[in-house]
Write a protein that binds this DNA or RNA. Structure first.
Length: 567
RNA sequence: GCGCGCGUAGCUCAGUGGCAGAGCGUCGGUCUUCCAAACCGAAUGUCGCGGGUUCAAGUCCCGCCGCGCGCUCCA
């Protein structure tokens, strides 16, 4: 193609899209990676379908994970091959599982969160709690004249600067006494015939004047302005059986982890695994997110790839570090190798309740176009201590029967001459858990974002630079033109290899158009049969990233692909 | 959940009260000798959904749904 032709072609530079989420979403839809769920009915917020190419991409990701984690795991920090067992648990489980895990109960009722201190308050109990068990509220009440309820401004300012500062640091009155009280005075003077009652006064004292459009209500702990009331059960509910009663209520699992914990005993008893070992699972989970957003990044239905790795409590540090680094390197190995991937150790105040005492929590994060310059979580690696197994031991009534008996350790301690009593204390225990928990949909999205490469040299202005192992289609097998025996040779090659690789055969239209299509769906190689093939048994290999070509023997194509795609 | 913006063919968009359109892509044909060639032909629309105003609504009004952005949320 000449330079002037290029200007006229659809691939002229003005067609090169910026690497924005909008452009990525458009390509996903145009080429069949991701569609909106039930789109013909207007879609449904937070749910997405994978199309013909998307399902291949996501499957390649999951297959690579399963292969590298379950079937063919690496060596651990102790130099031994890692022991890993797979499971596939149901989405709906006995509801008691979610009581034990803490998902039911704590957050089931309309609840308000304090942005200042993070405290949760039941919405319907707020005023009761303020009246009966809020330290600052009790102290503040003493500053009002009991009978008249008159507002003594200097007295309240004094309180705000003294006791208030210690007891309710986030209360508007404490942060800015003059402005807050003038706000209240305006209200009192504005409607002298309808003086505010105590609740309204307190609302005024909790409201920064910036919020003059509506009154806030204070957190009983710190006085901060509470967020809106929300039912903090993010679990989807359903009913098992025809009778839709409270007793038949079940939940769609909000994480796959609990299925693993609930099966801990079964796996130990049926497979001869010994601590340290892991149980791995890939499966759907559901969270009724308040705000699904950012394409598939936060969906209400999503797929997790989780490992619960069970270890002796005293080896948490080394296993935590091992899994954190191993998982980070794994994401690198499948193509997220650049600056867009980072490993971030959590600060202490970010840690979940059970992880506070642990060896740490870290996130493997990717810089998505919609988070940039920030990062979004792909996978979390957490030391969950023995929290989950203890919870299930307690709630199931199994108690110590859920403990692991470490016979290997027993023998070792006996050899070291440790006292029998001490050995017995040590060798029956709840294993600690290192949990690498990855999002399959987030991983797929990161692969799509990473692959998206604007390039003025391509007809559509963009090509998808997938790692060959992840690419939905591994190669195109094409006759250069649709005559002179070329289609027959190409077809024979295709039939030979299609069982081993996902390939495309296409004899229609100009060769450039076929290459261009493969660029846009990220196919790393195209093999083309031309007029020389019949003479010398070679084909051309066209490389997606460089658009360069070389000739190889037609009998070498399978080996070439196997080597490039790797595993 | 709140606020702002957006929604017409697969994609990018035009159409500001009067016949539903273009380019690209897709498909078929002629052709072909390595990067979306050319030519000929074809298919493709609940104008996001529902209601209202009007002789007449893609266009004006209301409600809803979906998407994006900012708050909020993310155990």
């Amino acid at each position: 193609m000449t330079e002037s032709n290029k200007e006229a072609a659809p691939g002229n530079p003005s067609n090169v899209p910026a690497k924005t989420m909008e452009a990525i979403v458009a390509l996903c839809r145009r080429r069949g990676f991701v569609f909106q769920s039930s789109e013909i009915y207007g879609g449904i917020n937070g749910f997405w379908d994978y199309g013909p190419l998307g399902v291949e991409l996501k499957r390649n990701l999951k297959d690579a994970w399963w292969h590298d984690i379950v079937r063919c795991p690496a060596k651990g920090p102790d130099g031994n091959l890692i022991s890993m067992a797979g499971v596939d648990c149901t989405i709906i489980m006995n509801p008691k599982v979610w009581v034990a895990s803490g998902h039911v109960g704590t957050f089931a009722d309309p609840t308000r969160k304090c942005p200042g201190c993070g405290h949760f308050v039941r919405a319907d109990q707020l005023w009761d709690i303020l009246a009966t068990s809020s330290e600052w509220f009790a102290s503040l009440l003493q500053e009002f004249t009991p009978v008249t309820g008159e507002i003594d401004t200097p007295r309240l300012i004094k309180w705000a600067r003294g006791k208030g500062k210690k007891l309710a640091p986030n209360l508007a009155l404490v942060r800015d006494p003059e402005v807050t009280l003038s706000f209240l005075a305006t209200r009192v003077n504005g409607q002298p015939t309808a003086p505010p009652d105590l609740q309204e006064i307190v609302r005024h004292l909790a409201t920064s004047q910036l919020h003059a459009t509506g009154l806030q209500e204070p957190c009983p702990i710190c006085g901060g302005a509470l967020g809106e009331a929300k039912p903090f059960t993010l679990m989807f509910e359903s009913h098992a059986g025809l009778d839709k009663t409270e007793d038949s209520k079940v939940y769609l699992r909000p994480e796959t982890a609990q299925g693993i914990f609930a099966n801990f005993r079964n796996v130990v008893d049926s497979t001869r695994v010994k601590v340290p070992f892991g149980i791995a699972q890939i499966g759907k989970a559901f969270r009724n997110e308040v705000t699904p957003r950012n394409f598939t990044f936060r969906s209400r239905e999503f797929e997790q790839m989780e490992i619960e790795f069970f270890i002796r409590p005293d080896s948490a540090k080394e296993w935590y570090a091992f899994w954190r680094d191993a998982r980070f390197n794994w994401w690198k190995s499948i193509g997220l190798a650049g600056e867009n991937l980072q490993l971030r150790e959590h600060d202490r105040d970010e840690l979940s309740h059970y992880a506070k005492a642990g060896a740490g929590t870290s996130d493997i994060e990717y810089r998505f176009p919609f988070t940039a310059p920030g990062f979004g979580e792909l996978e979390g690696v957490a030391h969950r201590t023995d929290f989950d197994l203890r919870q299930h031991a307690e709630h199931s009534g199994l108690g110590d029967k859920l403990k692991y008996f470490d016979q290997e350790w027993q023998v070792k301690l006996q050899g070291e001459g440790v006292a029998k009593e001490e050995i017995n204390k040590k060798v029956k225990y709840f294993p600690h858990v290192i949990e690498p928990s990855a999002g399959a949909d987030r991983g797929t999205l990161a692969l799509l974002c990473e692959a998206f490469t604007p390039d003025a040299g391509r007809p559509s202005g963009v090509f998808m630079k997938f790692h060959p192992r992840m690419a939905p289609i591994k190669a195109g097998i094409y006759p250069l033109v649709n005559k002179d025996g070329m289609p027959e040779i190409a077809d024979k090659l295709y039939m030979e290899l299609r069982g081993k690789f996902n390939l495309e055969f296409d004899e229609k239209q100009a060769i450039g158009k076929r290459y261009a299509r493969m660029d846009e769906v990220g196919t790393p190689y195209c093999f083309t049969v031309d007029s020389d093939t019949a003479k010398d048994q070679t084909v051309t290999v066209r490389d997606r990233d460089t658009a360069s070509q070389q000739r190889i023997g037609i009998d070498k194509v399978g080996a070439f692909l196997a080597e490039k795609i790797g595993g």
